[in-house]
Design a protein around this nucleic acid. Structure first.
Lengths: 217, 217, 217, 217
DNA sequence: GATGAATGAGCCTTCATTCAT
DNA sequence: CATGAATGAAGGCTCATTCAT
C-alpha cells in the first residue's frame, strides 16, 4: 500500500527514500501534517530529512513551494492508489464497498494527508483546493458513483432522486465521518473505534442502499 | 459584560462588544479564522481591534490563551443559539429539519468558526476538540437525535439499526457536507450552490428517513 | 560644525544622539560609510547604536530604507551647512575661497559621506544620486558660481567661455581632487598631505582665475 | 593564454577569452562592476561565465582572490592601452590632448572599471588602491605630464607654479569630471552629454593652458 | 577539467512578549 | 487602562565554499 512509486520527473512520491528530494518531501509531509504550513519549521524538516537546511532551498526554492510540491507529489500518488483500488465492475454493493475501502484507508489513521486536507478546507479560496479537486475529478470516483446510481435508476431498482445529492451524501457519510469523528466519537462516547469503523461500512451501505431503493407502492 | 451580542462584523460573541476585551476577541476571531493559530499575528489583532498590542497581553496574557478564550467565548454563544433553535418536539421530520437548520446556519458561509473548527480537527488530540465536544454534548443535540430514533424504532416505523451509526450518518450528511463542499462542489460541478443547499435539506431528510424506514416483509 | 540640528519630523540629523532613531542613523552612517550598502550588517548597526536589532526594523522597516533615510537625513544636514558657510557676496576670489572651504571641510577626512557618495557614483542610474543632485541643486552653490562667472564676463574681466564647463572644471578641481587623491597622492608621491591641501586652495584659485582672466591682445 | 583580447561584452581582458579562466574573469568584471565586491554573487558569475560554480573555486580559490586577479588582469591591459595611446612628443597641446583622449576613452561609458575604481576609492586604505596607483605610476602618464610642464616653465612660456598641483588639477579636471558627472550633469542640467564631453576637451585644455601661461608684465 | 549536490555560518527580518510612562 | 518603544529568540532564506563523482 505504501510502496515506492518513483516518477521519472520531479514528482517524487512519499516513499522514495533514497533521493534527497524524496527525503525532503517525506519529511515535509510529516512536518506540514503535524503543524500546518504556517506552523511548520524548515529547520525541523531539514533535521527530519537528514539534510542541510540549504538543500531544501536548493531543491524547492521556498517553504511554500515545498508545500505545493509535496501536495502535488502526494496527490499524484493517491490518484494511482485510488485507480488501482477502485473496482469498477460488480454489483452496486461491491462497488460502493470498494469506494468505502479506499477512503477508509486514506483517512483511518491520523495521516498527515488528513490534517493537510482539513487545513486546506479552512481556506476555501486557496489554490491548493482547486488542485486537489482536479486530481479527484480525474480519479473518476465521482463519475463511477454517478453512473452506478444512474444505472440503478434506469433499471428501476433505485428511486429517481437528485444524483448529485446522492453522491454528496454518500461521500459525506464516508469522508465526512472521518473528518468529524474526533468530535462525534467523543459526543457519542464511542470507545471501541476500530469496531465502530468496521461496522460503519455495513451501516453506511445499508442506509444508503435502503434510502435509495425503489419502493413498491 | 457577559451578554450575548453581535459584533460589528460577522462574528458573534459572548462578550460586551464595546469593551476592550470584546473588541480584542472579535478581532481575534477574525484573525484566527483567517490564518489559524500559528499564522495569526498579534500585531494584526491589535490593529483590527483598534487597541494597542500591549493591551492584548494585559487582558489575555498570551496569544495562545487569547485563542482559547476566544473559542470558549464563541462556543458559549453557540450553545445558546442551538438551545434556542432546536425544536425538541414534533414529528421526526420536523425535529430533523430543525437540526439541519441549525447546522446550515452555522456552516453556510465561510465563517471564522468553520475554519477554526477544521483546523482543530486537524489536531485530533488537541485540548480544544475536547472542549468543543463537551459543549456539543451539553447542547443535547445528539441526545435528541438518539431518542428520536429510539422512539421510532420502539414504535416500529423505523428499522432496528445501530443508533449511533445512524446519528453519525445524519450528522455527517449535514456537517460533513459543509466541510467537504469546497471539494465536492468543484468535482460535481455544482454551480448554483445556494440552490443546491436549499435542496440538500430535503434530499438528506429523504435519504435518511427512507433509509431508516421499516419495511413490510 | 557638527552640532545637533534636530528637525521636528523624521529627518533626524547626524548627531541627535538622544533619540533612538538618531542613534540608529548615526550608527548607520558609520556602518554604511565603512562597508557600503551590500557590505553593511544590521547586527553591527544595532550594536553600534546600543539598541536591539529589532528596533531598527521598528523604526526603519528595512536595511535599504534605513540607508535611504540616513542619506536623506545627512544631506538635509549638509544643505544647511553649505547654506551657512557660503559667502554670497564679496570679490570673486572671496566667494570661490568660501566654496572651496565648504568642500574641503566635507571631503578632507575619510568621512562616511565621502565613501557613500563614491559608492553611489558607481551606480550612476540609482535613485540616490538623483536625490543627492536635487539637494545640491537646491543648495544654490552652482547657481552662485554661475552668476559669479557671468558677472565677471559681463564686466569684462573674465573671458567669454562656456560657463557650465567652467563651473564643472572648478568643481572637479576641488571635489574631484578629494575623490582621486588616494591615487594621485601615491602617484605623485605627496607625503605631506596636510600641507598639499592647504596649498591646493591657492593653486586652484590661481589656475582658475588666471585661466579665466581676460587678456589684452 | 596571456594575450590582450576583447571579450564578447564590453570588457577588455588580458586572458584568453575562450579559456575557462578568461570567461570567469570576464564575467567577474561584469558582476563586480555592477554590484561591487560585497554585493557580487559567485552564483551569478558562474552563470554569466557559463561554467559551474565549483570551477571558479578551482581556478581562483576564493571570491576575493578572483576580485584581485580580475583587477590585476584588467590593469595589465590598461597599462598597455595607455602606453600605446599616449603621444609623448609634439606640442604641449598635442600631448595633453592625447592624455585627455586616453581618460575619456576609459571613463566615457559606464564601464565596469569606472564603478570598480570608485568603490575602491571609497576604501582609501585598501590594498587594491596601492596596486592601481602602482600600475598608473608605471604607465608614466604623470611623469610625462610633469616633464611637459617643467619644460614649459624652463622655456619660459609657462608660469612657475607648483607642478604637482598643476598635474593634479589637470587630472582632476579630466578624471574628476567623469567621476562626478552623474551629479554635475544633473545639477547643471546638461542634456546633450555627448556634445558636452566633446566640447570639454577644448575647454579643459583652454583653461589649463591659459591658467598656466606666462604673462608679460 | 567539470559538475550537481551538499554544508555551515550568517544575514535580514519577524514575532511574541515586556517595560516605562 | 492605554501606549510607544524595546527585547530576545527564532525563522526563512542566502551565500561562500567544498565534496564526490
Amino acid at each position: 500500500m505504501n510502496e515506492v512509486i518513483n516518477s521519472n520527473n520531479n514528482t517524487l512520491l512519499t516513499t522514495d527514500k533514497d533521493s534527497s528530494k524524496g527525503r525532503i518531501i517525506s519529511a515535509a509531509l510529516d512536518e506540514f501534517g503535524q503543524y500546518g504550513l504556517a506552523g511548520a519549521r524548515v529547520d525541523r524538516i531539514a533535521k527530519k530529512s537528514g539534510l542541510n537546511k540549504a538543500m531544501i532551498y536548493y531543491h524547492f526554492h521556498s517553504k511554500e513551494n515545498l508545500y505545493r510540491e509535496m501536495i502535488k507529489s502526494f496527490f499524484t500518488y493517491i490518484t494511482g492508489e485510488i485507480g488501482q483500488s477502485l473496482k469498477t465492475s460488480g454489483t452496486a454493493a461491491e462497488v460502493l464497498s470498494s469506494v468505502i475501502d479506499v477512503y477508509t484507508q486514506l483517512f483511518l489513521k491520523d495521516t498527515p494527508i488528513r490534517s493537510i486536507l482539513l487545513r486546506e478546507l479552512a481556506n476555501p479560496k486557496g489554490e491548493i483546493l482547486k488542485q486537489i479537486a482536479g486530481v479527484l475529478t480525474e480519479s473518476k470516483v465521482s463519475i463511477e458513483l454517478r453512473s452506478l446510481i444512474e444505472e440503478g435508476v434506469d433499471k428501476g431498482y433505485l428511486r429517481s432522486v437528485d444524483i448529485r445529492q446522492a453522491v454528496v451524501s454518500f461521500l459525506a457519510m464516508n469522508i465526512g465521518y472521518f473528518i468529524i469523528s474526533p468530535i462525534t466519537d467523543r459526543v457519542l462516547q464511542i470507545e471501541d473505534r476500530e469496531k465502530f469503523i468496521k461496522e460503519r461500512k455495513e451501516a453506511v451501505m445499508d442506509l444508503f442502499l435502503n434510502g435509495m431503493k425503489a419502493r413498491e407502492k
